[in-house]
């Protein structure tokens, strides 16, 4: 990595077993600022487990999690969020019944205290929220209507903007374009590049090899609970990735 990047998160020898199944064998992974790491793998390969270990949704059975140089003994979602880690889930990223601004601030609403009760600071949230969406290049048809009325790409933009608004260090995106069309996918991809430009560490889980090739600074391939490939941008070859994902041939780790 170049000298300007910062090591944000280190997973050292982490593993996870469920009853009768090893979801992830002992694995290492480093995440750097200003870098898009794409995680590839087929269904059930262990991508989700790896993602959950990164954000603290699951605790590791072994090894250690190091965030900005400090070992995390109790790595939970609450801890990771407080340190600037946000996840954009594939489904259920936003609540359709709320408006985009309510979704952006859900769970972290800005309030003004009048006497003893906290009231929503609606004007401030609308102003700051629309500024944030604009800065990410998201164009929404309405900030007041329900989020369910937006297109898939716009909804995903709201979810990403929420992550950016609170995730100061690391954003994890779980197949954010899986349900989107070509134009909407391009919009979301552009947003992901913007995140990298802001110096955030970005983890993108995807099935699409072309997307990995276009966006990734680094690619990690997961198969049968192991990280079987870890390539820098210059070494990414779509054919090689496909072989690694399907397991027809093994490859060396960088």
């Amino acid at each position: 990595m170049n000298s300007m990047t910062e090591l944000i998160l280190q997973l050292k020898n982490v593993s996870k077993k469920y009853v009768g199944l090893t979801a992830l064998h002992p694995s290492d992974l480093d995440l750097y600022s200003g870098e898009i790491l794409v995680i590839l793998g087929s269904n059930g390969a262990g991508k989700s487990t790896l993602l959950k270990l990164m954000c603290g949704a699951e605790s590791s059975d072994s090894g250690e999690v190091i965030f900005l140089g400090a070992q995390q003994k109790h790595w939970s979602v609450a801890t990771s969020r407080s340190l600037g880690v946000e996840v954009v889930h594939q489904e259920l990223a936003v609540v359709g019944e709320l408006n985009p601004i309510e979704n952006l601030y859900l769970g972290r609403e800005l309030v003004v205290h009048k006497r003893w009760w906290p009231f929503l600071a609606r004007r401030v949230m609308r102003k700051e929220g629309s500024d944030l969406l604009r800065s990410l290049g998201a164009q929404l048809s309405s900030l007041k209507g329900k989020t369910v009325e937006l297109s898939g790409g716009q909804r995903q933009a709201v979810a990403i903007a929420r992550a950016v608004g609170w995730g100061e260090k690391l954003i994890i995106l779980d197949e954010p374009t899986a349900a989107l069309g070509i134009a909407e996918t391009a919009e979301v991809e552009q947003m992901i590049r913007t995140l990298r430009g802001r110096g955030l560490a970005v983890v993108l889980v995807t099935h699409r090899l072309d997307q990995a090739k276009n966006l990734a600074d680094r690619v990690a391939v997961v198969r049968q609970g192991r990280i079987v490939g870890n390539f820098l941008k210059a070494d990414i070859e779509v054919g090689k990735l496909a072989i690694l994902i399907t397991g027809e041939e093994s490859a060396s780790v960088v």
């Binding site: 969020r81 889930h89 259920l92 609540v95 019944e97 709320l98 309510e102 859900l106 609403e109 009760w117």
Partner: peptide
């Protein structure tokens, strides 16, 4: 109030509300 937004979020999509804590 934030509580009202949380209530509507839970009624709308409880799992999504849970995921944001």
């Amino acid at each position: 109030t934030p509580l009202g937004v949380h209530m509507r979020a839970i009624g709308g999509q409880a799992r999504a509300a849970e995921l944001v804590g």
